[in-house]
Design a protein around this nucleic acid. Sequence first.
RNA 1: GCCGGAAUCGUGUAGUGGCAAUCACAGGAGACUGUAAAUCUCCCGCCUUUCGGCUUCGUAGGUUCGAGUCCUACUUCCGGCA
Length: 400
Amino acid sequence: MKEFKFEVHRRLDGALARTGTITTPHGVIETPAFIPVGTKATLKALTPEQLADVGAQAVLVNAYHLYLRPGHEIIDQAGGVNTFMHWDYPTFSDSGGFQVMSLGVGFKKVIDMTGVTDEKSLARKEKLAWIDDDGVRFKSHIDGDMHKFTPELSMQIQHGIGADITFAFDELTTLHHSYDYQVESLDKRTHPWAVRSLAEHQRLNALRSHRPPQALFGVIQGADREDLRRKSAKFLGAMEFDGFGLGGALRKENIGEIVRWMSEELPEEKPRHMLGISEPDDIFECIENGADTFDCVSPARVGRNGALYTRFGRANVTRAQYRDDFTPFDATCDCYTCRNYTSAYLHHLFSSGELLANTLATIHNERFIVRLVDDIRASITDGTFFELKKSFLADYYSKK
RNA sequence: GCCGGAAUCGUGUAGUGGCAAUCACAGGAGACUGUAAAUCUCCCGCCUUUCGGCUUCGUAGGUUCGAGUCCUACUUCCGGCA
């Protein structure tokens, strides 16, 4: 059975960008790579075959959601998430750390980088998570039952799920938290929780030797503070993690710089995963500064909501102007949707509320981001990264 | 022909003597970054960038301090009876 392994192949002159391969029990990931998110062990609206066709090399599922339903024991009984969801390629599982924020403090604040930016819609929401230094108490969003997550339970869940790459349980703070809170969050929760996650992970890997060994990535926090990001990266970088998740509240204006702080402190021979990042400009910045993999719900969610990426920016296909536009939404795209359907047809599917709208839009958006990162990987190999970055972003922000 | 009922935003409606325009749908625009999301927000009579101004409850009269609301006639529609 293949052990987890990361190899760097090519480094870009004048930047921290690099290509490599992550080897897992379920196959190899060529990096940099975009990893689509299938929270509940399914990428909404796609079959695993459709997801593979889009070029996805791996999928990321979520411990919190699968713990609530169907329960990680069920997935364990099924033989692990790969078998359960009929996905033969590598898998990641998130720890539930994001839900500490999105179900907790995220309920009432305007948060950057969380998908929730509207105070009015937030006002109607109910807080469902409460943090203390031992862990987080959650009220299930499904039935209101109380549950408590700890680093140990998160790892037990993630071992039941059986993903190739797991993440340490962390606290995602927001840019609205004070400096003092960020310090306290690192010292009292994210870092101690990383220690506990790693210990439990090692115990479970030894205990469950009948299953493929799993890898664990430590998650770095510290918001937009250089001293905290470096401190967090240094602390976690010295531990026996297989790689790192670069988490959290990242100020978009200097996201590359923030990633660089962490990359400079982290061991070079371990992979760096950007949690929840997929905007094209962010991807370029992160890769340039040392990021290897990305996951994000955005391509899928945004697609289901009617917005599609194009070489010339993202636009809503629900707009009236597309009602009689019989050209592909992005003529430069090689995806199944753009090869076979027109903007007018997609517009019709969305306005009719047809389910195929979700499938075709998701195929396109996932392909668009996967392909972008694939192109970036090739550009690192042949040394044209900066040319690609310049030309792509010039087109992308010329607006469709 | 007679009897009864109805007429409010593009549509269906709320409104039962006191600032008309509630709710839904349709329509328009936008948002979405480790998924409480096939979701959410805003606009949706006219004018105005805003503040705000103006108009309007089938038509014409009447009662009343005041009428979408009560009365009369007419028009149209829906029932029922001939």
